[in-house]
Design a protein around this nucleic acid. Sequence first.
DNA 1: TTTCATTTGTACGTATGTATT
DNA 2: TAATACATACGTACAAATGAA
Lengths: 92, 92
Amino acid sequence: MEPDADADIDHGAPLPPYRQLAGILVARIRRGDWQPNRAIPSESQLVQQYGLARATVRRAIAVLVDQDVLFVVPQRGTFVKPEGQHPSMPDA
Amino acid sequence: MEPDADADIDHGAPLPPYRQLAGILVARIRRGDWQPNRAIPSESQLVQQYGLARATVRRAIAVLVDQDVLFVVPQRGTFVKPEGQHPSMPDA
DNA sequence: TTTCATTTGTACGTATGTATT
DNA sequence: TAATACATACGTACAAATGAA
């Protein structure tokens, strides 16, 4: 079961909002909402879309950057890292 | 030149406070203020000692956890990781 | 060249939750 | 029961760099 790309945040769930958002973003990337090397919405836009504080959005992004799913270019945006979703996958 | 273990934070310096604190903590560990597997001061204590916000202290700690200098045990404390300071040092 | 909006970086303070002691 | 310590989240503010007008 993967996170629903259209799901919104449930502040009552055991999984904290920042992890929920990370899962949602991954689902949306896999779904094709944003292509490799293309920018995802800005932090401000994600704040508005998901009703979270910016710190929470940034934390979700940090998780995915750490997992090589996204990469950030200061003052430019946050982008989908090409071939970065699978830490150990020879070449499909 | 290593960071002075007794230095305090300079909010005017180009290096942001969270990085300054990370450097200070590393210096204090190398100096022997805290031994391996021993807890460093709590976040609240560091907040008071260095006049920083807790979020900033946590960020400095996160940097050192990422560098394997510290490890955190929830609700217990933050500890000095043994042999974790040198990412590539055979055995001195 | 200058101005302005956008975007990420950093920091502050506060509140609540959870687990341990 | 109460105190301690980390986890998470909120909102706000300002800085710096980019890019467009």
